[in-house]
Design a binder for these strands. Structure first.
Ligand SMILES: [Zn+2]
Ligand SMILES: [Zn+2]
Ligand SMILES: [Zn+2]
Ligand SMILES: [Zn+2]
Lengths: 159, 159
DNA sequence: GGCGGCAATGATATGATATAACAATATCAA
DNA sequence: TTGATATTGTTATATCATATCATTGCCGCC
């Protein structure tokens, strides 16, 4: 669960980062997979903000301290982090975001602000059950889904 | 409205194409925009099937009869068709699909079969109202959304 | 400790998707 | 006809992602 329920509001973001990295270490230990230095560094970079970040922006950051970093370096780390439920891809932006609900089985549901760029992950039963109902009505069996809602976050509405 | 309520089922698809092109001509006339030969041809190519098709696949098709076709040719046509509500982009596939509900104001909701590739556009109030409720609960005001549901269509479940 | 197998990373190249910028042409109303 | 605007042509480049093979690091086993 996220440390802040509304990432667009000011908050002590260093706690978000610490929490995310701590949880990631736990999860990886539980799953017996290796959260290597590169992978952890990339996860840390993704958690630098609550805005989805592109692979090449990550690469640029990573390359500052890791001279050998090339596109495959990043994409491999991203694949690992996705496979282990630590990040999500925002399909409509070709960008990546730290998962705010690590551990649970879920597909992403995102509220993405068109002004400040912040993406908030939510996990609303009403949404998933509506999808389930609508799909069933068409004889369709859900395996996964992409939900990306664009609009104005509470903070940016007040500007 | 679509001629078939379940595009994965066998049907006379030439009617889908005719209907889509006919509606497009009407809409463009109403809106006083020009459905040029290239644009109409691209729309026809998109409607060759109910599977989302990528820009470069379209380009390859178009180039058969239109030697001068280059990436901008396709992307301009795609932009026009999107702007006028005649096609949708499937974000998770970087591919394009004919709109099954031209005329009405709507964002897309898609059921995409992971076996046969068919994408069915739906427009379910229960989905949009669930999104609205969930967003409001987080103080978020919706402008648009991306809904792409992956799974098995009725036909492919029976295989 | 040394060996062998496998996971991870390095390195190079290329594929796939999308747009910028400017020139040439077509359309259409005045 | 002519000028304004939309469309298309053309070239180049930006952006996103993966294939392939070599090398290195990790770890259990002898
Ligand atoms: Zn934070
Ligand atoms: Zn905002
Ligand atoms: Zn059809
Ligand atoms: Zn199917």
């Amino acid at each position: 669960m996220p440390l802040t329920d509304s990432p667009a509001k000011p908050h002590d973001h260093s706690l978000c980062i610490e929490d995310a990295l701590g949880q990631a270490r736990l999860i990886c230990e539980q799953r017996n997979v290796r959260l290597t230095a590169i992978r952890e560094q990339v996860l840390g970079l993704i958690w630098q903000s609550h805005k989805p970040i592109g692979a090449y922006d990550l690469l640029e950051q990573l390359a500052k301290t890791h001279h050998a970093a090339k596109p495959p370096t990043i994409y491999r780390a991203l694949e690992f982090l996705q496979d282990n439920g630590l990040i999500h891809k925002i399909e409509s932006q070709n960008a990546f975001l730290g998962c705010a609900h690590v551990g649970g089985h879920h597909h992403g549901q995102f509220l993405i602000c068109t002004i400040c760029g912040t993406a908030q992950e939510i996990d609303e039963k009403i949404v998933s059950s509506a999808l389930e109902n609508a799909s069933q009505a068409h004889g369709f069996r859900i395996q996964s889904f992409v939900i990306e809602i664009k609009g104005l976050c509470a903070t940016c509405q007040d500007l």
